[in-house]
């Protein structure tokens, strides 16, 4: 199965938020009460009931009163996913055969480690402490349908397809490298940025926290080998040198 991906083109986005609504509708997520913080961006952040949202970036501009950038924000479906790496519960977070990162609330133990392990601050947890995030409509794409957000988008700002095909097309259109093309082993959500990622509110070089990588490569195997090593040293000592015998002691 070819890895699937979304291509986000902020300059095509008109900020209608049809994607937010379509996502809520497909995933049966209730609306959340929000407050007006003086920006049209609403709600201000992802919530357990909001898997994707449009980030509104207002920039000074020479040709217009203001330059608006609308950036779709959600789980990036990383190839090397920090959330999966750190999760202590088997099956709570998993890769689908299309390359999406899905979740299973029944298997999630509510430890919230994934919240800290994700380079993009994506996972949220619901009132039962269970993980909640975009799953690339893995139920839809498994049936050959496109994700609800991409299906709804009226301008093509969210385009869905085979990851390789998307990259190929973007290259023909003049993008040398998409945002997310190689980060974290390649993201499942890529961005056609015309400016530096920072301008769009994105991290230049997203990475899993170093200590988590260190834990995965060193501390985790050390628990295994440390236990075995201590047992082996004890056994070896017993066989080679033997116990302390006190003449007349026992």
């Amino acid at each position: 199965m070819a890895r699937k991906a979304l291509l986000i083109s902020p300059e095509l986005c008109i900020g209608c938020r049809g994607c937010q609504t379509a996502c809520k509708s497909w995933n049966r997520l209730p609306a959340t009460k929000t407050v007006n913080k003086g920006s049209a961006e609403n709600p201000p952040d992802l919530t357990p009931n909001l898997y994707n949202k449009i980030r509104y970036v207002e920039m000074p501009s020479n040709s217009n009163t203001v330059r608006w950038l609308f950036v779709s924000q959600r789980c990036m479906h990383c190839d090397d996913a920090g959330c999966i790496k750190i999760c202590p519960a088997p099956g709570a977070l998993f890769k689908t055969k299309e390359g999406a990162v899905g979740f299973d609330k029944d298997k999630c133990i509510g430890c919230k480690l994934c919240v800290a392990g994700c380079p993009f601050d994506v996972p949220r947890y619901d009132e039962k402490d269970k993980v909640s995030k975009c799953h690339l409509c893995s139920d839809r794409i498994a049936e050959g349908l496109m994700p609800a957000c991409a299906k709804t988008c009226p301008t093509g700002a969210i385009a869905y397809g085979d990851r390789d095909a998307i990259i190929g097309k973007a290259q023909k259109a003049g993008y040398q490298k998409l945002y997310g093309q190689t980060d974290l082993g390649g993201l499942g959500i890529m961005y056609a940025f015309k400016d530096t990622p920072k301008v769009y509110g994105m991290d230049e070089s997203p990475a899993i926290p170093e200590t988590i990588v260190f834990w995965h490569k060193v501390l985790k195997p050390l628990a295994y080998w440390g236990l075995g090593g201590a047992a082996a040293v004890s056994l070896l000592h017993y066989l080679v040198i033997g116990p302390k015998k006190d003449e007349g002691g026992e």
């Binding site: 480690l113 919240v115 800290a116 392990g117 200590t211 260190f214």
Partner: peptide
């Protein structure tokens, strides 16, 4: 998130 990442390291 920083505190949890640090705690995860210390715990391990």
């Amino acid at each position: 998130r920083k505190l949890v990442v640090l705690s995860h390291l210390v715990h391990n």
